Computed example of a mutant assay.
Amino acid sequence: MESQIKEYMPCESLRPFVELFWEGSFNINATGSMSMQMIPNGCLELIIHLNDLHCDLENNKTWSQTPDYLILGLITQPCEVRFKNCVSVFAIRFKPEGIYNIFGVPSSLLMESYEDMSMVLGHGFLDFSKRLKEKIGVDSMIRHTENYLLKNLLDKKIDLNYVNLAAELIRNTKGVRIKDLSSQLYISQRQLEREFKEKLGISPKHYLRIVRINEVLRLLNEDHMIDLTSVAYQCGYFDQAHFIKDFKKITGQKPTIFMMDKEQFISNPGLAHYVD
């Protein structure tokens, strides 16, 4: 196995904003350079490198080594990642609407790109990150991270508006129609689409497509014997051609080809919002 990822739930108070925490190691054997495709998961990833070995990413058509503290914005298509050595990280996966509530950073500013988070947030974040690297064990890292994020929440005015509610409904109800979503929130579809795009950088329909395909991937990861037709139906697809089209747009491959070559992809679709 060339990569390993473990996911952890956040505390109850952070769940409206944070999808999960995860730790990962990539190119574990380090026998040579390795390239993987990162699948869009509908979230933003704050990735903290735990040593001096980093991956390479393309930004604005230029390949470069990623910074120590990387914030990867919401992506809508597969993103190539290159590993020259064994890379170990600890990461916070933010819901796209949630990162604004904690840091005041709209996810729309980070669409399809990445930034050095220390340049975005400054000294307080750098101090948190350096102390994080001194912690022994992932439980200690998570407690330290939760304390830092909760302190930021206390310093901010929390605004759980209809964009937050719409995004959460999309995640929890994969078969929802956008026009039904706007009626549930008592706003016009046009208003919802405008505000969603302005704050998240993506339309509700496009976001729903990413969420659905990630639910497909999660179910396939849990049960390797389940068939694709059943999974597609469970995730709100009633037309197989539509499902295959969406799957290829998000992963870059048809479902059958993807399943045969899963080791080439970074696909960690999450914990299904803590539903047993």
Rank of each mutant, 00 (worst) to 15 (best):
S3H: 12
I5G: 01
E7M: 02
M9F: 15
C11Q: 01
P16R: 02
F17L: 13
E19N: 12
E19S: 09
F21H: 02
E23Y: 03
G24F: 06
S25Q: 10
Q37L: 11
G42L: 06
G42K: 00
L44H: 04
L44K: 09
I47Y: 01
N51L: 13
C55K: 10
S64Q: 11
D68K: 06
I71F: 04
Q77H: 12
P78R: 04
P78L: 00
R82G: 02
C86N: 13
R93M: 12
E97R: 11
E97S: 12
G104A: 02
S107N: 10
L109S: 13
L109C: 15
M111V: 10
E112Q: 07
E112S: 05
E112Y: 03
L121H: 07
G124L: 05
F125P: 07
L132C: 05
K133Q: 09
I136E: 15
I142E: 00
R143N: 09
R143K: 09
T145L: 08
L149Q: 08
L149W: 01
L149T: 05
L150C: 09
L150D: 01
L153C: 12
D155G: 11
K156F: 14
I158S: 13
N161I: 04
E168S: 14
K174M: 15
K174A: 12
Q184P: 15
Y186D: 12
R190F: 10
Q191A: 14
E193M: 13
E193A: 09
E193S: 11
K197E: 07
S203M: 05
H206M: 14
R209V: 07
V211M: 04
N214A: 04
V216M: 04
R218H: 05
R218T: 02
R218K: 13
L219P: 07
E222H: 12
D223I: 11
L228M: 11
A232V: 01
D239L: 02
F247N: 00
F247M: 07
Y274V: 13
